[in-house]
Nucleic acid binder design. Structure first.
Lengths: 163, 163
DNA sequence: GCATATGGTTCACACTATGAATGAACAAAC
DNA sequence: GTTTGTTCATTCATAGTGTGAACCATATGC
């Protein structure tokens, strides 16, 4: 972006007051910080390094995962995944099995202990998000959610330029 | 939290549909990821480690800072700050001076080069936030901002419990 | 069979972060 | 005016996050 971005904004041709930009910047910074602190807290609470925690959550939707797939989903290089997997295997959260069809591939799956940990984490996450939502009145909640959708769309549109 | 949190939600006594919780969880995750990717991008773009970049921005509001003050603002331990400062001094972005009043404390201030870098970064940040806002229609924008305020308040209220 | 793609691991490196120990400088108290 | 305790900063050991290059084993395509 930036090279294209600096010259002119794209959509609306009305000017945006700078106090709105400041307000927005502050809000985003604050929300981002909240999320980071939650991650920190989770890591402490579940006694798992952040990366292992995030990796564990990938198994919520998939029964089997490969290092390659994990690398893609987590957006890290494969050597990094090897390390994360090592840690989780050492903690007996997941197990490695060779793919019978293609023995280059290792299949990862949760151990019972890993499944328990995942359930714990998901329960925590749900309850924390529920708690945040329950701070708002029902109508307010709807408004917040739909405006977040708008924000998400806008941020993703801009992200495309940021390469 | 959690111990108190599990039993019952606090404010509204109406039930929150689980699809709303899911939606919310997804939105937050996505926004968080966007912010992280922006950080990454910034770090690459300005050829500065993330921590130094964040530290540099503290000088936007303050002419002089101490390691202790930075540790507090950045929410890290002071030994970590020493390292960050070392890097920034090596890059000639900031300089160390002894406080004439109390020679235990070191005063940090931007070099001209550091000031330039900071200006660059601030310009970038403003333009990116402006770009996001300009994706929305004026009325939409107002709505998003005010709903973000609500969200911020809710998240901070919950954060208090998360100790 | 042989070249080559692919999947995974190992290794060396750099950044983020903490906590314990150390040393220098100040502030009082005796 | 030395001792005692406090505060500020640094150093060091340790752990976690992440990359990229080199490597090995296993497929797959001529």
């Amino acid at each position: 972006m930036v090279h294209t971005m600096n010259e002119q904004t794209t959509q609306s041709n009305d000017t945006i007051p700078s106090y709105q930009v400041d307000q927005f910047q502050g809000l985003i910074a604050k929300l981002f910080q909240c999320c980071q602190e939650r991650m920190q807290y989770q890591s402490d609470r579940f006694k798992l390094p952040d990366a292992e925690l995030r990796c564990l959550q990938l198994f919520a939707h998939e029964r089997y995962l490969t290092p390659k797939g994990i690398a893609h989903k987590m957006n890290v290089v494969k050597s990094r995944v090897t390390k994360i997997i090592d840690g989780m295997v050492r903690r007996k959260l997941i197990q490695r099995v060779k793919d019978p069809e293609d023995s280059r591939i290792t299949l990862l799956s949760l151990t019972p202990k890993g499944q328990d940990k995942l359930n714990e984490i998901n329960y925590f996450l749900e309850s924390i998000h529920l708690e945040v939502l329950s701070q708002m009145a029902p109508e307010q909640r709807k408004a917040v959610l739909s405006n977040l959708e708008v924000l998400k769309a806008s941020m993703e549109a801009v992200k495309e330029l940021m390469v």
